[in-house]
Structure formats: structure tokens, C-alpha cells
């Protein structure tokens, strides 16, 4: 059943790398304006599914996506859909902060410029940095290299960079895994602040993080195949408090209570 408010929805999505299956038969809806967390052990395919939503998997020559993903009820992998256009609507924040080796200002302005932004660039840069709770820290050094910032600041710069092109959805691939606890906390607060305006999908290996920030949680698991590789699959997807307090599946319960692996 596709809910009427779903921005993204996956139907029986399987992803292959070369001939080996990485994730099988995932179906879920991402409701508009909510924060959805993907959790699960490593190798369960949660990042792989995330990267299908903005077609980053297109950049991996051997990757192949089966099934259907719709974005605002249009087939994301349809023949007339352009991956570049999709990515300007569905932004992404990565596991490790990856600011461009440019000034802080240019880091923000780059995406806007290529996407043909017609407004006032200075205002956009300031607005985006404020949105990412970074403005006060960097307003006097906008010409400094983005690489000169601390890890947590770099990651907020990357969020500001994603926000600047005003996407509808922001995908976050373990955005705090390379950060210290304090920086992590700031990013989590930021994610919650952004939630009203953006739909956010966040992959995390940190269950507390999922329970703190998300409205819904999807639990992925992996099983070994005969060939010795792992195949990920979706175990359970529900409201976050249900996943953490009264999950329907035994595996989910084991995982969220820490009895797993």
C-alpha cells in the first residue's frame, strides 16, 4: 500500500554488484517531512538502498538496480528521468565529511551556481550556513578553505552545502560515524531542526541516534549466501517507538536490545 504522502517509495528493490546480489526485495515508503532511520549490522545493505534514492549507484559501473523506486509518484529509474536533475532535488551527506578544497563560501555557492541559482548568492550562503548552525562560527572566515574546519564543522558545512540547493529530500549516510560525541550531538540537533522543511533519510549504525532523531525506523539484516557473500534484506519498518519498544520480529528485538551479534 503506497501512502498518499510518500515522497520516495521503494517496491521490491534488489541491488546487484556485478552478478552478486547485495540487497533483495526491499519495499518501503518515505513519508514527506519525516525523519526515517535505517539501522542494521554492517553489510545489510542500508547504505546501498540509500544510494538508490538519488541514483548515486549509477556511478558504480557494476551496480544494477531491479524493482521500482518512485519519487513523487514518478519512476526514479524511468527512461526520461535524469540522474543529475534528481540529485539536485535529493541531496546527500556522506559518511566522512567531504568539503571541496575550496573556500567555505565556494563550497556552498558551487551547487547553487551549477544549478542556475538566480537569487543573491551572499544571502543564500549566509542562509544555508545559518540553517546548518554554522554561520556564527565561520562568518568571519568565509574565504578560508573548507578543509581548515574541524570534523564536526566540516560535516555541518556539507549539510549547509546540501541545503543550499533547496532539495526536497536529504539522504544522510552515517553522517556522524567519523565525529566525536559532542559534534555528533550538534548534528543530531541540526537534523531535528531541519525535519520540518525536509524529508530526511538517515543511515546509522548507532541505535541511540536512530531512537533520538527519527520518526520511523527500518531495520535491515543480512544473511550469508551459499556463495559466501552477504545479502541484505528489510526485516521490519515501523514507527521508531514501536521498533524500539514492541518490535514485531524476534530479530529486531534482539538487535535493538543489543543481544544481536
Amino acid at each position: 500500500m503506497q501512502s498518499p504522502t510518500a515522497v520516495l517509495s521503494a517496491r521490491s528493490v534488489s541491488v546487484y554488484y556485478g552478478s552478486s546480489l547485495a540487497v533483495r526485495q526491499v519495499s518501503l515508503d518515505i513519508p514527506r517531512g519525516e525523519i526515517v532511520a535505517f539501522i542494521g549490522p554492517s553489510g545489510c545493505g542500508k547504505s546501498t538502498i540509500l544510494r538508490c534514492f538519488n541514483r548515486m549507484n549509477d556511478l558504480v559501473a557494476s551496480a544494477r538496480v531491479e524493482g521500482q523506486i518512485t519519487y513523487n509518484d514518478r519512476d526514479l529509474y524511468g527512461p526520461k528521468v535524469d540522474a543529475v536533475a534528481i540529485r539536485s532535488r535529493i541531496g546527500m551527506v556522506f559518511q566522512r565529511p567531504n568539503p571541496f578544497p575550496k573556500s567555505i563560501y565556494e563550497n556552498i555557492a558551487f551547487g547553487a551556481r551549477i544549478n542556475g541559482y538566480r537569487g543573491n548568492m551572499d544571502e543564500l550562503v549566509e542562509g544555508s550556513l545559518r540553517r546548518a548552525a554554522l554561520w556564527d562560527e565561520v562568518k568571519d572566515k568565509l574565504r578560508d578553505s573548507g578543509l581548515a574546519l574541524s570534523g564536526g564543522q566540516q560535516q555541518r558545512l556539507c549539510i549547509a552545502r546540501a541545503v543550499a540547493i533547496q532539495p526536497e529530500v536529504i539522504l544522510m549516510d552515517e553522517p556522524c560515524s567519523a565525529l566525536d560525541p559532542i559534534s555528533t550531538l550538534r548534528i543530531e540537533e541540526l537534523i531535528k531542526e531541519l525535519s520540518g522543511d525536509y524529508t530526511i533519510v538517515i543511515v546509522t549504525h548507532n541505535m541511540q541516534q536512530a531512537s533520538r532523531v527519527s520518526d520511523r525506523t527500518a531495520f535491515f539484516n543480512a544473511e550469508a549466501t551459499d556463495a559466501g557473500s552477504k545479502v541484505g534484506y528489510l526485516v521490519e519498518y515501523d514507527r521508531t517507538e514501536r521498533i524500539f519498544h514492541e518490535p514485531a520480529q524476534e530479530a529486531t528485538r534482539d538487535y535493538v536490545t543489543g543481544r544481536f551479534g
Partner: peptide, 19 residues
């Protein structure tokens, strides 16, 4: 990761390479 960051902003291949 830098290329990914650029592609994720909706940059084309040339824009990613040049910028």
C-alpha cells in the same frame, strides 16, 4: 568522496571534473 560530494549536488561529470 569529493567526486561523490559534487555529483550529490546535481553536478554533471564535466562540472565535477572542472570545478
Amino acid at each position: 568522496s569529493l567526486r561523490d560530494g559534487s555529483y550529490a549536488l546535481g553536478a554533471t561529470k564535466r562540472e565535477t571534473i572542472v570545478s
